[in-house]
């Protein structure tokens, strides 16, 4: 029951955070989340920061550039979007750390099924991603050159794209084979 309540709280909080545009309110909400996270504050903060910093920097710099060229105000929008994205990400990590999603979604067999599929894909990909990182570390005798890192990243992206397509095809075929689509 605890897991279902946490998930319900999270869903409600996401709706509130995405529909309310007051910066002070969002900042206050974030402070409350910081306090609730307790001893895990630093860990969650770091995870959320690194998860959003790349994407948000691109959006913020692009918006700032266009606003400066067009002479529009920019500060409020940039603060709002960054605050909201960071708060949602922090909440996501906070809830994942506390909720057993399998228990929380146990009321729906379809949701549980989708969760199992997504979870198994994430675990498989995570294990392979870790192996990619370990393999590079193992093979690099001296510091890798920029060219090598470009090759490594592009080869990893290609591998995961191909694997995603192949896995999706296989999962779909397996589901069809087991009568999931009813055809």
């Amino acid at each position: 029951m605890k897991d279902k309540l946490f998930l319900l709280f999270y869903a409600a909080a996401v709706i509130v955070v995405t529909s309310y545009h007051n910066i002070m309110f969002l900042a206050g909400f974030l402070v409350v989340m910081f306090v609730l996270s307790g001893a895990q504050f630093l860990l969650l903060f770091r995870k959320a920061f690194f998860a959003v910093v790349f994407f948000n920097s691109i959006i913020s710099v692009s918006y700032l550039t266009v606003s400066l060229i067009q002479g529009h105000p920019w500060a409020q929008y940039i603060v709002l979007i960054n605050l909201r994205v960071f708060l949602l990400t922090f909440m996501g990590f906070f809830i994942i750390n506390r909720v057993n999603l399998f228990k929380a979604l146990s009321f729906s067999s379809t949701m549980t099924f989708i969760l199992v599929l997504a979870g198994s894909q994430i675990l498989t990909f995570k294990k392979i991603y870790d192996d990619f990182a370990f393999a590079l570390k193992s093979r690099v005798i001296k510091r890798a050159q920029t060219k090598d890192l470009h090759n490594y990243i592009s080869s990893m992206i290609c591998f995961f794209l191909n694997k995603s397509v192949n896995n999706s095809r296989e999962v779909t075929q397996a589901m069809r084979s087991r009568g999931f689509f009813g055809d």
Partner: peptide, 18 residues
């Protein structure tokens, strides 16, 4: 790194050159 080498279970994870 030169003396102790490791062949991973999935060779794809080790391959990245053109």
């Amino acid at each position: 790194r030169k003396e102790v080498v490791f062949l991973f279970q999935h060779p794809d994870t080790m391959i990245f050159n053109p």
